[in-house]
Design a protein around this nucleic acid. Structure first.
Lengths: 215, 215, 215, 215
DNA sequence: CATGAATGAGCGTTCATTCAT
DNA sequence: GATGAATGAACGCTCATTCAT
């Protein structure tokens, strides 16, 4: 008791395990974690309520596992691509694109990320936070490398930039997910990168006219 | 039936009404809406369970009211300041500052905004969404005015910029709220504005070297 | 504590006392005792919730008092009429008429008699029963007198006859109260009395053909 | 949502389903519907509170089901007997007997019929009324057939007669149920039928002396 | 006398979890 | 392994009653 039940692993990746995860993501995305009885998840997955407890420790565990595995895939994808894609600007763009495109792969999962992952301060502190921290760290490293290579300004904090990029993309994703509006993620990423790289100030008044925020 | 109970309003702005709201925000920020029994809110507020229903229609109503009034105050503050602050860049900066500083006024409320307001797709669709939409609209108008005045580039979408600014600030707020790290919000806003205005690309390679995202 | 609060009796029959009783009867008739909050009764009566407890010991006490007083009036009316109306058949008819006409005097009270007075076996045993018993006793006495006078058959139980008459009238009242159908109570009483007096069997086959229920 | 839960029906007529129904009837008969917490019914049935909701949609549903099934059995019994019992007088007698004897089969159910079925005008209008209407209809048809056959007088309303019979029997049942007195239902029915058929007026004064109710 | 804000016990119902089959 | 009937703690909410004003 207390241990994650070792997925029965019926020599084949255990299809039920995955069915339950998928069903949980779908149902929770639709109705919210606390309005999704385990029985509803079981029904969607086509298994008995009790079966879920053969594969997961608790209802909570299902949600955590779903989120964990999504992040794992995300980082694996990034990592692999970075083996051949080394330009910092292109790396940022790649991350942004994967992030923003994610809901086209699995809209339910995207919804879930925008909602249930933020369940409560406690949940975030104990669980979600480290996923986001890792995201930020990855971006920061890219930024820092860009700064070292001289392609990014060195007078801005890599942390602030990382948060800005993540926040911007995540907000656009959120907007896309909760709105009817369909738009082109590729083009959007390009715009975001343009803004991030070049800013929105007109360079007409360049030289002395640069905007300098009030102190 | 179905109406908000007329707060008993014992002449004086009803101290209990506010006590309950504050307690609810605190408790919900700590434990999440669904893990916060009405009894816990009542206890924190120093009233009996039933008393909450003299002032609010339901548990849900308490949360909604808290969020509504926070947004109302936010917009009122912006609106008032805009009467004398008309420069688009300064307006953006002001919004960012108020947004980012909000947790110093009421950290619990900031936590709640980062969590409960995004709880469940349904809740967002029915309730939270219009608050965020209004925020974006306000920012978009500022951007558009800046574009007309020629201080902002006209080849970027005002919507995308608005989402980027909101997302960036909100993410920084989120990070501040869920981290021990204390930092200077003023300085952070200045950095964000700098990035938004000028971008992070080094201008050394200006002329031809501008970053152009892959098509 | 435990004593019926002596109605304040502001030297005038205390209008509020009566207002509360009337309001209670109305509200309870509409929604049922257990679905009628004291607050609803108070509102209808135009008094504060707490005021009810100045005149009555409890919510229950209001209902009991209303029923008690209705029965008291009923018996007083009967008793008075009997001073001059002495023919047993006419006495029965008078009782039936008052009973059946009661809902035209106060429909709410009639509804309440048909519903709340039967609340539960416990309520009936402890409270309602003796009212009904008295009704039956009054009728039985009339029957017995009629038997002594030779106008009623002596080979039928006065108790059974009394219950039959009460039951028949009460059921007709119930039907009248819960149905749209409007009908003439006077004519109905006449029919019931005709049936009770003469039966419904045709006398054609009189002599030997009388219906004799199977043993 | 809103549907009666499919009783788990563990092959065998579902003993728990019946246990719950019986317990509910017992408890509600003793204390009244609104004074019978679901927990009390569950306890009496020997199941957990939640189990009741595996078999019934709500507390209300338990009561309705109990009443419905009692009426269904009643009508089925009548219908079957009428296949071979065709004499109108005997049919009336049969109905009366089944009705009056019902409490010997299940006293609690009889109590419940005398109390809860008449609880609150709203409940009656929406639910109970049609059961009683059907009863009256059945009796009316018998009366009408008797009138056609010439065994019942044709100058009395079949509706009034039906209500009288039902009311009389029901009141006798009520009296039997709420009184210690034990009596012979068979004999009582015979008396009621005698009264209904022949009336209680003495025929001595037949010819001119017939009671004619005042106009 | 009258008020009505406040109380808190008690209710109907849900649902995560267990376990006999 | 898989089932799903059963559990019972926990929750949101109501309302009879009290009492300070």
């Amino acid at each position: 008791m207390g241990e994650r039940p070792e997925p029965p692993a019926t020599g084949g990746g255990s299809e039920k395990y995955q069915k339950i995860l998928d069903a949980a993501v779908e149902v929770i995305a639709e109705r919210g974690y606390f309005n999704s009885p385990v029985s509803a998840i079981a029904k969607r997955a086509g298994v008995a309520d009790g079966t879920i407890y053969l594969y997961f420790k608790s209802k909570d565990d299902v949600l955590r596992t779903a989120i964990d595995s999504t992040f794992a895939k995300f980082y694996a994808q990034i990592e692999q691509r970075f083996e051949t894609l080394t330009d910092p600007r292109e790396q940022l763009e790649y991350i942004a694109e994967v992030h923003l495109t994610s809901h086209q792969v699995n809209r339910s999962m995207a919804v879930l990320m925008q909602t249930e992952m933020r369940q409560s301060a406690k949940f975030i502190a104990e669980f979600s936070h480290h996923h986001l921290v890792k995201y930020i760290q990855v971006v920061r490293e890219v930024i820092r490398r860009g700064q070292q290579q001289g392609v990014f300004r060195q007078d801005v904090s890599d942390g602030v930039v990382a948060h800005c990029l993540f926040g911007a993309i995540d907000e656009l994703l959120s907007s896309a997910v909760f709105t009817e509006r369909v738009y082109d993620p590729r083009a959007t990423v390009r715009q975001v990168m343009d803004i991030l790289m070049n800013g929105i100030a007109t360079s007409d008044d360049a030289g002395d006219g640069e905007y300098i925020p009030a102190s």
